[in-house]
């Protein structure tokens, strides 16, 4: 026991011997991480406290560290707002079905491109990579979508970005680097075909990259407003981000322009609603992250470093 303890202490002791300069250096590093921490978290924290504080006090700059005169008017207003819930429903549909479609297209393609014995691998890869750096542009793409009859339908927001080439590359790199070739060969000798290998060997061993891909795609769908802006116009198909844009940004000019005329109460209520909307629309996607975090670093590391 005693011996084991001594061995355990040895590296710690060597750390304590470091020079004064190194200790100062590490103290500076800690100070810098604390600064970064505050810079990142404070704007977020402010939104939280402003969403439950008296808006008049917020506007006077009296709410800075902790909420003051707590009230939940903003959240109550949101609960009653049908626009937000319709947007929410649409976004959930696009996130769920969009991401499922993304995975169905990305993973098999990544597997095929990871096979060294696939002769056409390089030309097919070029076919995909070329589109990362060259595109038809906005108008020709719009024309194609229009021709397909997809303008202002929910379908366009599900299939518009059905495959992201960058995500395809990291999935391919991951499969190529993590799954040992012997495993394929022995499966092949047992008479397995590519479909069986993909389903029974590759997918179960690729949980980390699947988590990363789901996260990338789901966050994209949740936050995307560009495609909705270009390809949809009706409120009944528009996602949450378009509703947010109307509430938060287009209303903004109105409120600041006529604030004085409107009177204090309406003005400050509108402000509390804004902060609350930000929270309600951001928290769900933040909640996804802890579930995939476990796999995340591994997935990003292997998928991207050699990308």
């Amino acid at each position: 026991m005693d011996n084991a303890k001594k061995i355990d202490l040895a590296p710690r002791k060597s750390m304590m011997q470091e020079s004064r300069g190194d200790r100062i250096f590490h103290a500076i590093m800690i100070a810098l991480t604390i600064t970064t921490f505050i810079v990142i978290i404070y704007p977020l924290w402010f939104v939280v406290i402003a969403s439950i504080s008296n808006s008049d006090l917020v506007n006077q700059g009296k709410v800075t560290i902790l909420p003051v005169d707590i009230r939940f008017y903003g959240f109550q207003q949101i609960m009653k707002d049908s626009r937000i819930w319709l947007g929410y429903r649409n976004t959930l549909i696009y996130v769920v079905f969009g991401t499922i479609l993304n995975m169905i297209i990305t993973m098999p393609a990544a597997y095929a491109l990871s096979r060294p014995d696939f002769k056409a691998r390089n030309p097919v890869m070029m076919y995909f990579v070329f589109t990362m750096y060259f595109s038809g542009g906005l108008v020709p793409t719009y024309m194609v979508v229009n021709k397909l009859g997809l303008i202002n339908t929910p379908w366009i927001l599900i299939i518009m970005v059905a495959l992201n080439t960058y995500n395809l590359i990291i999935a391919r790199t991951f499969i190529q680097n993590t799954i040992p070739n012997d495993l394929y060969e022995s499966a092949m000798l047992d008479g397995a075909n590519h479909f069986t290998i993909f389903w029974h060997i590759v997918l179960p061993l690729s949980k980390a990259i699947i988590a990363v891909e789901i996260l990338y795609y789901a966050v994209f769908h949740w936050n995307d407003y560009f495609n909705a802006l270009i390809y949809t116009s009706g409120a009944e198909v528009q996602p949450l981000q378009m509703v947010l844009r109307r509430i938060l940004l287009q209303n903004e000019a109105f409120a600041s322009g006529n604030g004085g005329v409107q009177g204090g109460y309406a003005q400050s209520s509108a402000d509390q609603v804004k902060y609350a909307v930000i929270i309600v629309s951001t928290v769900p996607i933040l909640l996804v992250y802890p579930f995939v975090q476990k796999y995340f670093e591994k997935g990003v590391m292997i998928g991207a470093v050699k990308g």
């Binding site: 297209i105 097919v124 589109t131 038809g136 194609v144 059905a162």
Partner: peptide, 17 residues
């Protein structure tokens, strides 16, 4: 296995080109 990806890229990237 590549077919859906190839078709998608063809329609939404190469046709606009």
């Amino acid at each position: 296995m590549l077919l859906p990806a190839i078709v998608y890229i063809f329609i939404f990237c190469y046709m606009p080109m």
